[in-house]
Amino acid sequence: MIATILGIFGARASTRYSFPGKGGLIGLIMLPLVLPEIIVALSLLVVLLAIAVPLSLYTVILGHVLITTPFAVAILSSAFQSLDKSLEEAAYDLGEGPVSTFRLIILPLVAPGIISSLLICFTISLDEFIIAYFLAGADTVLSSYIYSQFRFPAKVPAMLALGTILVLVSIVLLSIAEFFRRRGIAKTGGKDTGGFL
């Protein structure tokens, strides 16, 4: 389930690069970052019910894409901005077309940004509860599953253990993400202009 989300936001955030001037669009994408999650979840629920979409894992995916995209955009746009435009022009000048320039020059140079964005979004999505709870319908998502299991005292120790594992996994993934982001900056010789950690 999560893997699909990752693919979507990866591609989506990359498109930012094609229209660099679209400030309004970026603002719209960034909006879920400042809105309380419960409002996003509730309004999505209302909209989905209004257009009679059955609640399922797919609606959860939709919600998660919505809230993780701002993070991906933030990380990837800093990766794209630190890219010297003349590198692209140089590849073009040396006879490559736009597609091979993207593949040979741009992609390898923003790869660390893409990896770190994948990991951060995975972590956020894994730990997210409200949207999963509201939009999952009959399907189960890890976070809401944990919540539901707390009703049974016998399951509590197992859930606590699972929670601990989740915290640890999150920390490890975030650290790896930051490691890749910093290494990418060092490799291209740029200045570190802030990250999430």
């Binding site: 010297d84 003349s86 590198l87 022009e89 140089a90 590849a91 073009y92 000048d93 040396l94 006879g95 490559e96 077309g97 020059i105 390898p108 140079l109 490799k187 291209t188 010789g189």
Partner: peptide
Amino acid sequence: VPANERPTNMVFQSYAIFPH
């Protein structure tokens, strides 16, 4: 004629060496 098909090559001010 687009840049990649012109019989010209350029040395950029920033050199634009591919760092990877």
